[in-house]
Amino acid sequence: MQDVRDALYIGHRSDGTLTRRPMSPHLQVYRFRLSMFLSIANRAAGVAAAAGSALGVCWLNAAAKGPESFKKVQKVTRNPLGKLALAGWTLALVYHFVAGLRHLAWDAGYRFEKKEINEDGPVAVGVTVGATLVLLASIFGVAACRSRKKKKAS
């Protein structure tokens, strides 16, 4: 036994001999709570947002490289699978943004009581879903309008 982490596992039997006590319950033992899902979802959303941002840089690079590179990228962004990835990236960014604002509020000492955190969780979910839907509808709507205008002009 090297330190207190291991030492804390050690208990006494009734006859005085030492024994190693069981480990504390693991994650699957606990009842599901929204707050625990939102916590890990923020981390997952951060990773997804980072991956999407790296792809966003590829888009930027293609625009700088020239029309042909940009056409290749458009094949991805106009493909249904590409659109799904864009939607996923948007969802991740929006949720990470919302959860980040909550974290900043907590760090400043607001809404950090258990009751308040449990009240705010469903609000965060609603805001995330609503904002994501509005954003995606506007982005795809604007894109569709623009391509229709271009068809009329040509």
Binding site: A54, L60, K65, P67, E68
Partner: peptide, 22 residues
């Protein structure tokens, strides 16, 4: 990735390629 992004932005801003053959 950060450097790649910065260089891409600078190229887009200062020396973008608009030729079809690029």
């Amino acid at each position: 990735i950060g450097l790649f992004a910065v260089v891409a932005v600078l190229k887009l801003a200062l020396a973008p390629s608009t030729k079809a053959g690029a």
